[in-house]
Design a protein around this nucleic acid. Structure first.
Lengths: 241, 241
DNA sequence: TAACCATGACTAACATGTTACAGGTTACAT
DNA sequence: ATGTAACCTGTAACATGTTAGTCATGGTTA
């Protein structure tokens, strides 16, 4: 029989494993405050709440532990980790080192995907207009991811993606209060413009401005929260510039 | 009670879990060729060979999968992944972005740990003299790790450490043949010298030279191995410089 | 009051059982 | 010969069982 081409959409092999679903569930729980940083939890009870066995939950938490979102304590339980000012400064040092050149490279990338970039930027503006912070965070992440994708280095993209994970805990909870969503988005605009007009150095510079601004703010907020007169700016100066 | 400083070495909670031991065992097995890239293996048999149950072995492999050393195939088994030229170029793009500024920062770091740096360099020379490639790789890794430690960003250190993991598969097996150990070590010397003399820009430049040289070589070797006229230099140009 | 110890509740880490599915093989119809 | 469908094997993913260790508590002693 000739293998005639059938016009059928193939089954989406999208079946997310229980482990992956558990990862998302934990992330959501952290965002919504169901899981509080510092508190001790157990795989046992978490698995029960999720309605699955301990195995996939444990696997999920181990993967989250790998990226520093949670930490296991032997025979005690696990905790959600709130990144302190040191961690945040370190994270932004990495982001600056990787995302700034990536923005420049994205400006030189093929024009084919530029439309997607424009769309992502517009969608971000929509989130601003709707004043939906959760949506904003999501689309902000997508925009940054898109720029990294344009730059063409998957490893960089994946690395940054993991870091952003840790940030959202702080970002969503506190620090963004000092800036309006409109203010943050205003910082991306020049990045997007520069990329669209093929201006590599301009895109890199704009990205640097944006990341420095965001990073400093988050680090200061984290320092204040930890009290003890932690000096975020000193940490910043030691690792950046 | 005044918290007097006690000169007691704290209890070494050094008990490495079975999972961690399994990770090391797998790494060793890959290095020694017991586990061949591309071949299908099962957690079942591997666990049996290691003399432990499947759980810690599975955990270990999942963590290695996270860093791209192995890949699982549902209901089939797992494979050791040999990084191709694309991956290698991406890895070195990251290393350049992170390690070059780190070298510069290390030069400005506290003088206190400089002695360790000198020692690490000397030990590397010893490995060269003994013509012991395995030992060389280990100490080379330690030297790079030390420089990153001096730079003060733990996140960077950990990130690079993970990447080097993937590299050693290629490095140990093939590519280093084109350079003598002495030749490689000759590239670090100016890095170490510059750091010791506090010359930040010089250290950064020397590190850049070293990483470019190494990366190009590994990428070309990987491209040759994959055949098909893969052009490593084109990939390199697209992501670096 | 304070140091000590037994004991019980709870946990991660590890071990073992179970299941659904991917992919090869084989028997068979055409 | 060739496509096909039933069957078989081996596996990851998931579920459940076991163990050793941590910590809180409360009772006991000095």
């Amino acid at each position: 029989m000739p293998r005639t081409h059938m016009q059928i959409t193939p089954i989406v092999t999208n079946a997310p494993s229980l482990t992956e679903r558990a990862i998302e569930a934990v992330r959501d729980a952290i965002r919504e405050g169901t899981l509080v940083p510092g508190e001790l939890y157990s795989v046992y009870t978490l698995a029960e709440n999720l309605g699955v066995s301990r195995s996939p939950v444990r696997d999920a938490l181990l993967r989250l532990a790998e990226t520093g979102v949670v930490r296991f304590e032997r025979n005690r339980g696990f905790r959600v980790i709130m990144p302190g000012p040191e961690e945040l400064v370190e994270i932004f040092a990495v982001r600056l080192a990787l995302e700034v050149p990536a923005a420049g490279r994205a400006a030189r990338a093929a024009v084919s995907h530029r439309e997607a970039l424009r769309a992502a930027s517009a969608e971000l503006q929509d989130a601003v207009d709707a004043d939906d912070e959760a949506l904003f965070m999501l689309r902000d992440q997508r925009l940054h991811g898109l720029i990294l994708a344009l730059a063409g280095n998957n490893l960089v993209r994946q690395t940054i993606e993991n870091l952003r994970d840790a940030i959202r805990l702080v970002g969503a909870s506190t620090a963004e209060k000092s800036r309006t969503l409109q203010g943050i988005h205003a910082e991306h605009t020049p990045i997007v413009e520069a990329i669209l007009s093929g201006d590599g150095p301009g895109a890199a510079a704009a990205m640097a401005v944006h990341l420095r601004e965001t990073g400093r703010l988050l680090a200061r907020e984290a320092a204040r929260q930890e009290g003890e007169g932690r000096d975020a700016d000193a940490l910043w100066a030691a690792l950046i510039d």
